[in-house]
Design a protein around this nucleic acid. Structure first.
Lengths: 199, 199, 199, 199
DNA sequence: AATGAATGAGAATTCATTCAT
DNA sequence: GATGAATGAATTCTCATTCAT
């Protein structure tokens, strides 16, 4: 399913091996990073022979790309899942941030894998963040229509919000977990809804 | 000055060679990224012999570290230089963002170099962003005292603002320059000062 | 029939598969040469599964050998077929060359396959050229008896004639076809019958 | 001198190493053929480290190409050297053949290296044989002017003569040396000067 | 200080062949 | 007979680092 073109497994046994390889790759890339990771490390963790890797993937880049795509979906799903059905506006963005922070704490390797794509697989990296920004912008659009968000340039806002989330996730999700997620999310939502200028 | 300890140049000629190596390294790392870059690529661009590299640096990591430190200072100086003497509060942050965007457009390699440090030299990466966040937080503190910014958790705010800046810089500084810097800075400052919630 | 010993097909379906493999091998070896050719390339072109190859052949060498033998027969038959029933002497050799040139133009892969056997399967190579030389020598013998060719060392002559044919075939059959076959054959026959020394 | 571009040695020590590599390559390719030969085999025979190979050559193909060029010159020089100062016409061609046969007997590896180039490095192969044919054609031209050779298509004749020589060299120079060189050369010259048709 | 040759560990990739289904 | 997944040895090539001059 995420094998290289022409290398899709045709039997059940093949599908199992492919899955083992992808799982092993997530571990290997997560632990060692793209460049330090090795195909033989992946197959060792997967419990297959070295050559088996090439039954399903063309190269190290190919499996990495497949993986980034996979994980990008996971992150998107986690953020969406964190939003309550009927919230909108800055509240909804706060929920998304909280969900993202929780996800980052649980899946530190995903952070590493997606962000290293900026250098190892730029196309996937761009696609991941462009997609995320578009989803935020679409939510803002909706909220503007609903009258809970002021009109404005939602593309710029979306990239600003995403940047906030990513850096808060790195700082308070991955590097240091001594603060509660609540705390971070509340502060960020306040900034987002009312700004910080004294009036 | 940024040579490895014990390898500082002692003559004028030595200082020149060191400078040539650092400039060449900025180009090489900027063009090819840390892992694809090679020492021989650096010395080729510097016009020196391969062995000369080790007269000034202990390793590839060492010169990379030196470079990240260098660039980190440049970025900080550029942001500071963009702020007018007597501005404060969100206005000052808007000016810092504008200055940063201008710098990013002129020095696209900084993203490649500083951000890849997350994987190639995590200590420098952390130091760069921690330093930047501290400077933002300190400015906010001042502004709170001056009464132009509401009291709040300035550490969280600082990381949020920094994230905004970094992603706006990547999206509208490096990837696509069809929007004016003004436009971006104004929208970001509005978000920052008043938020986006309708009242 | 040309399968490896003990692997001859026993059913009609088997005979078809064998034929598909041999045809595919001619294409694969012709296009890519012995070393670049791969079993999987052969089975891909044949439209069979990889493992099926080993139902009929013991190894890559085995099918290559079978193929060289096949082609060797084709070449011999083509040369013979070009000779008119009652010609002899140098006329007959001229006809054989013309037939060979026509064959080479139509089957450029034979050079690639037969000549590469010098390195990939020396026994077959030797057998091919020794056989061809013997046939030429036998024809010369006949012609000597018929009084149209002067007595002489027909083994040496046969190898000389064969060398001529092979290089004229490569140069004017495979590499460049701007000259007519007639032209080449006439010039070669003249050389062969009267030599080139002025008298 | 025959290193890959940009890899020419700059010191005496370098020139020595390059020479060792080329000599080792001639042995390795001669013994094992292009495909069976390995870089590590070459460096083992040369007594250098594996990596040293890449100080001078870009690839296995590159050193092979350099070698074919080298050997092509050797062969040409040997054939020329065998011709007596004032001979011409078919006599001269007979001398060239005798010289070539002697050379082939002494340097069987050269035969193998140049002929395998048809598959491993076609450009060099073509260049080698095209050059040889041009030299023969030029000699014939001269002899025609001198009145010792009849006018005719000297390009076709040259390729025919070259083919004769190559196959006689393979058969009676490399495969089997039970006949004397004299014997072969005399028979070939007779064929060439008077042809074999009875009159 | 500068030079550039030498080193060798390390990694990706290929592919003939085997074998269970 | 046919299938296609699994195997792993073998090979090429890279490059940071050392060192003699």
């Amino acid at each position: 399913m995420s094998a290289s073109p022409g290398k899709e497994p045709r039997t059940e046994r093949g599908r199992e091996t492919l899955r083992k390889l992808l799982d092993a790759a997530a571990r290997e890339f997560g632990e060692r990073g793209f460049h330090e990771a090795s195909i033989s490390g992946i197959t060792r963790q997967a419990g297959t022979a070295l050559g088996t890797f090439y039954t399903y993937f063309d190269s190290k880049e190919a499996i990495y790309s497949a993986l980034v795509g996979d994980m990008s979906q996971h992150v998107a799903r986690a953020a969406t899942a964190g939003m309550s059905r009927d919230s909108n506006g800055t509240v909804r963005e706060g929920e998304a941030l909280a969900a993202f922070l929780a996800f980052a704490r649980d899946h530190k390797e995903i952070y590493r894998i997606i962000d290293e794509a900026e250098f190892a697989d730029p196309a996937s990296y761009r696609q991941h963040y462009t997609g995320a920004a578009e989803r935020i912008a679409a939510r803002l659009e909706e909220s503007v229509k609903a009258g809970v968000v002021t009109p404005g340039d939602n593309e710029i806002r979306a990239w600003a919000i995403m940047g906030m989330n990513v850096f808060l996730g790195l700082r308070f999700g991955v590097w240091d977990t001594s603060r509660t997620i609540e705390e971070i999310a509340v502060a960020a939502e306040a900034l987002l809804s009312e700004g910080i200028a004294a009036r």
